[in-house]
């Protein structure tokens, strides 16, 4: 699984091409081994909690915030978090190239059923696919 994941991530990440200016002083032009992202919890732990924190409470910096998930009215519709994960929002990067449909569905379902949230309308990878932009931002 690790190998399959690695290859699929590489193929899906044109932003890791050597010419991408955002990677100017970056460690490398190649993404290495990544953790398995099989469940919503996996995705949350290995991708989201670096900013939104393990308890989903977000954080406050210099007059700006990483939003909390607890009691966040924007999570009422699953389409909103799917959109933000795909396209990014403000300082948050887009993940349309990094995460696959099932991974996005899993993590949206995870967030909407944890951190004090109890939404029952789970979404499927097909729901995510329907929202996927024709081309990811870095490919345009």
């Amino acid at each position: 699984m690790r190998k399959i994941l690695f290859l699929s991530v590489l193929a899906a990440l044109p932003l890791l091409a050597t010419s991408h200016p955002a990677r100017a002083d970056s460690a490398s032009a190649v993404v290495g081994e990544v953790q398995p992202l099989n469940t919503g919890e996996d995705v949350y732990r290995h991708v989201c909690q670096g900013c939104h924190m393990p308890d989903g409470k977000g954080a406050t910096g210099a007059g700006a915030q990483f939003p909390a998930f607890a009691g966040n009215a924007k999570l009422q519709s699953s389409a909103y978090p799917v959109y933000v994960i795909m396209n990014g929002y403000g300082g948050m990067p887009w993940f349309s190239g990094t995460l696959k449909d099932d991974q996005i569905a899993n993590v949206v379902n995870y967030i909407r059923t944890h951190f004090g949230n109890h939404y029952t309308d789970a979404i499927t990878p097909a729901d995510v696919a329907a929202q996927r932009p024709a081309t990811s931002p870095q490919e345009q």
Binding site: A22, G50, C51, A59, G61, A62
Partner: peptide, 22 residues
Amino acid sequence: FAWSRVPWTMGCCSMWSEQARK
């Protein structure tokens, strides 16, 4: 040092997509 957890930048540095650049 995790740059996305730095209170005064909340990230490391700009990540321009080609589309945003245009």
